[in-house]
Write a protein that binds this DNA or RNA. Structure first.
Lengths: 253, 253
RNA sequence: UGACACCGUGUGGA
DNA sequence: TCCACACGGTGTCA
């Protein structure tokens, strides 16, 4: 679960994409006017490589800490995505608590199919946003499952997953109460749990590490930021075709 | 046993520290956007007063940034006015982690008085170097204060300042532990905090922006580089007379 | 005590 | 543009 970075070299010894900094550094070290940049996912890097270095938009949060593994090994960005339908959900909240939004990325047969953003909440938390993401991922999953498709949901919030797929059983059996105090975000949890119950034998809900360069998670993350930026209260589709590098360049300010 | 509280007023009628709530309340009552908070000790309050209120409420990033920048400049300019004794400290580490050194520049009555360099550590970090700088600045400050001189320390490491003047209070109260893991550079922090406690009511510790052309900071920076170059493990004075522009022309961080 | 997430700050280097 | 060193807070649960 180490963070894999992808380095685009536009101008250097051998332009291309590299998976470790030492490797990338060789291409740019000592090259006058070298252009290069790191990205969290290969998809992002490939889009950027084709777009060229022109934009200075920069992913502002590129340098969140997580240690990179020693060598340029291939991290399993693929391991968690091998279903007929894969739905990634994410939430953002800036500051936390504060304005919050949700994003979804849907893959069908391993290809990006739809992007959704919205559910803006001017007074949310990171967890309301993540629960909204999971709830709506479940709703999308329901359609897929009813169409006979093998479906998985990928969520980076252990809290949201456990609320809906684990703890909710116990809470419900005690009439949605908890010894230690009121259950936060209860309505959202109840809604999501109800949908989950309908699908429980037919879907997989997986935890994916955040900020690990997993494409679907990164795209859902950007959508959640877009939701905040646009204060979009509905859940609306992002119109195709998808220009990934443009989407990833979205920023507030 | 009623606890004595200390009230910091950052924005109000008359910013400062108050020792009773009625007194503090007068300063903030009816003042739009007033910022204030109570602390358990005067030392904590003073550190907090200098650090600023810390929490942001704004959601508009651009305008917020500009505004806080402007007001931050104002605070700094006001607070950085000359003292009878001004001590600048800095640390360098090249590469980081790696060989590290520390430098100090001391002004007395607005005139450069001494330059110190050393504390070479062949396996340091930027932060060990900065903490060494702050520790030894505090030691120098102690002499000055005991001589009845109004004294300030200027440090460009927010990390070092906060470790010693702010976070150390909480860490000490929890037996020098932290929720999120072990405290790095603990011995250095403990030493510096102990000296700080002796002086807390009689000195000012200020943050200065790095690489901003502030003479004292620049000179301390050159001294820290010199410490690495000479691998000087003691803290030794740079012999006068001082040719400031020649010193500033030395290799810098 | 642990886990996941969401935000924020500064410095040291190439 | 890249790397690394260090830290704070809140949201939530078992």
């Amino acid at each position: 679960m180490a963070k894999q970075k992808f380095y685009v070299v536009w101008r250097g010894m051998a332009p291309g994409i590299y998976t470790s900094w030492p490797e990338a550094e060789k291409q740019v070290k000592g090259v006058a006017g070298a252009r290069y940049k790191s990205f969290a996912s290969r998809a992002e890097a490939e889009a950027a490589l084709q777009s060229g270095p022109g934009k200075s938009t920069g992913t502002k949060k590129a340098s969140k800490d997580r240690k990179s593994q020693a060598s340029g090994d291939k991290v399993t960005a693929k391991a968690s995505r091998w279903h007929e339908v894969d739905i990634y959900c994410d939430g953002a909240c800036d500051p936390n608590p504060g304005p919050a939004g949700t994003g979804l990325a849907v893959y069908r047969d391993h290809a990006l199919s739809e992007l959704w953003y919205g559910l803006f909440n001017p007074a949310g938390t990171n967890n309301t946003a993540e629960l909204q993401g999971l709830l709506h991922a479940l709703k999308l999953a329901k359609s897929a499952v009813e169409g006979g498709r093998q479906t998985a949901i990928h969520c980076d919030s252990r809290y949201a997953i456990d609320c809906v797929t684990k703890w909710a059983f116990g809470w419900k059996s005690r009439d949605w109460t908890r010894k230690t105090g009121p259950i936060m975000n209860l309505a959202l949890i109840q809604d999501a749990h109800a949908v989950y119950l309908e699908l429980v034998d037919r879907i997989t809900v997986l935890h994916v590490p955040g900020h690990a360069g997993i494409e679907g998670n990164e795209l859902a993350d950007r959508m959640s930021m877009l939701a905040i930026q646009k204060a979009e209260t509905d859940l609306v589709p992002c119109p195709p075709p998808f220009d990934i590098s443009a989407l990833l360049a979205l920023e507030r300010g």
